[in-house]
């Protein structure tokens, strides 16, 4: 297989998907702040290019694991926004029937085999799927999305070691948004700011990527995915990005230095692609405005329908506990 350049349609659809994720997350923020949804949520505004560009490299049958900050991946994999809203509202029509919630947007039919609320839990699981593909001689690849904070827990190192040892078709993707919960990576992570270097001791390629540039994200992940699919083994990719909101609903992100958020917003991933598509004559500024309005309307409708949906019952959901 050779690296395919994404065509105009593909990049237009990336743009729509990023807009959908942004509008979804903004609405979720409103719903949480107004108390319409309780509990907590972890939003990914600012990180959309990482989710959409990476998932754009997946083929049918490929799988990925992500985290509690996984709405972007879930929507990029094609979960309907209504299904995602319903899950966050705990409704029966949610992706997990309402029992999972914000941290667990999961859809096996779309290759989304896990959204985990335990830091570090997803990497071995993705590796296991990849080793499974290898043993079954399936031409598939597993991706694992996790945060910069997750590279300090044992499972990261243990998974990378096994992945390299077994040359498994897995791509580890660090969504480096510079912070754990409240901690800047410099206060928790040794070895300097380039996290891709953590690939070196495990003998796999490690690449740092501009996570705000979806074309760069897609090119890097596609290369790693092709390599894995071709039997070339695992890779570690570091996406340098930023989360616009605090860690979770209750976090006003007071630990950020003044001006940092604004500087990152100057490099907004949606704007970067939007400008490029306009210049390249693929999607005019006007058409982009129309698209924004259409997606906003879609999100409004989806949120409304999810709000009207029923809650699940214990009886309906009790079959989720054990397989028969």
């Amino acid at each position: 297989m050779s690296l395919r350049e994404p065509d105009a349609d593909t990049r237009r659809s990336w743009f729509s998907t990023m807009l959908r994720i942004r509008a979804f997350e903004d609405r979720i923020q409103e719903l949480f702040m107004s108390g319409a949804i309780g509990g907590t949520t972890h939003l990914c505004q600012g990180q959309e290019a990482v989710s959409v560009g990476s998932i754009g490299s997946m083929e049918p049958g490929d799988v990925q694991t992500n985290t509690y900050r996984g709405h972007g991946e879930a929507l990029a994999l094609g979960m309907a926004s209504e299904t995602a809203f319903a899950e966050l509202m705990g409704k029966a029509t949610g992706g997990s029937g309402g029992v999972g919630g914000s941290m667990h947007l999961i859809d096996f039919s779309k290759g989304n085999i896990g959204a985990n609320a335990i830091v570090g839990a997803g990497m071995p699981i993705a590796l296991g799927a990849a080793v499974g593909f290898q043993m079954q001689q399936r031409p598939n690849v597993a991706l694992s999305f996790f945060g910069d904070g997750a590279i300090n827990i044992g499972t990261f190192h243990e998974a990378l070691n096994m992945a390299s040892l077994w040359q498994a078709p897995v791509v580890f993707i660090i969504t480096n948004n510079l912070y754990g919960e409240y901690s800047p990576i410099s206060s928790t992570t040794s070895g300097g700011p380039d996290l891709a270097r953590r690939a070196d001791p495990y003998g796999m390629p490690g690449v740092s990527v501009d996570g705000q540039d979806i074309d760069a994200v897609h090119a890097a992940v596609s290369a790693a995915v092709e390599r894995a699919r071709g039997g070339g083994g695992p890779s570690l990719l570091e996406m340098k990005t930023y989360r616009y909101r605090g860690h979770s609903r209750s976090d006003p992100a007071r630990y950020r230095p003044a001006g940092e958020l604004e500087a990152w917003k100057e490099r907004d991933p949606i704007d970067i692609l939007g400008r490029r598509l306009a210049v390249e004559g693929i999607l005019s500024a006007e058409a982009q405005l129309g698209l924004r309005a259409a997606i906003q309307a879609e999100i409004d409708g989806a949120a409304e329908r999810a709000t009207a949906a029923p809650y699940p019952t214990l009886e309906e959901t009790s079959s989720y506990v054990y397989a028969d």
Binding site: G90, V99, G100, Y311, P312, T313, L314, Y322
Partner: peptide, 17 residues
């Protein structure tokens, strides 16, 4: 808590159990 049902997210179910 129920013998065979983990803590769910859905608010009415959590309240119930």
């Amino acid at each position: 808590l129920p013998d065979d049902y983990p803590v769910p997210y859905s608010p009415p179910l959590e309240t119930l159990i």
